[in-house]
Nucleic acid binder design. Structure first.
Length: 107
DNA sequence: CCCCTGACGGGCG
DNA sequence: TCGCCCGCCAGGG
């Protein structure tokens, strides 16, 4: 059955626990499209309109807030800080501590 | 219909 | 270690 890739991305993003973050690449890999990390970012870009998806919990593999420009107040960094995740210079501090990898934490 | 621009990331020199 | 290139592919001009 044909599943819409963007839809699948949204499903996974919704599973990211409060106070944790994931990356575009990890999600793409989990969906079996490891070279389409970019499409995950693209999906987030068109998704943040709907407030149901915690798009602020998705960053790049270095913990950089590459998508901050898509958020209005509160900023992406503020949203993360509200969950206990500190950001400095657009980079998440102690990234690996909060990183949630669907490939290993999800079945 | 062609061209360009990305919320990415691995590979290679 | 650092930077450039390339695959990916949806939307807009």
């Amino acid at each position: 059955m044909e599943r819409d890739f963007f839809q699948d991305v949204y499903e996974v993003v919704k599973l990211i626990p409060y106070g944790r973050v994931s990356s575009y690449g990890a999600i793409a890999t989990y969906l079996g499209a490891k070279s389409s990390a970019r499409m995950v970012g693209y999906a987030m870009n068109s998704a943040d309109k709907n407030s149901n998806i915690p798009a602020h919990r998705v960053v790049n593999r270095n913990g950089q807030l590459s998508g901050k420009h898509a958020f209005s107040e509160p900023s992406m960094a503020e949203r993360l800080a509200a969950e206990g995740i500190l950001v400095e210079n657009d980079v998440i501090l102690n990234f690996n501590t909060y990183f949630w990898n669907p490939n290993t934490e999800l079945l």
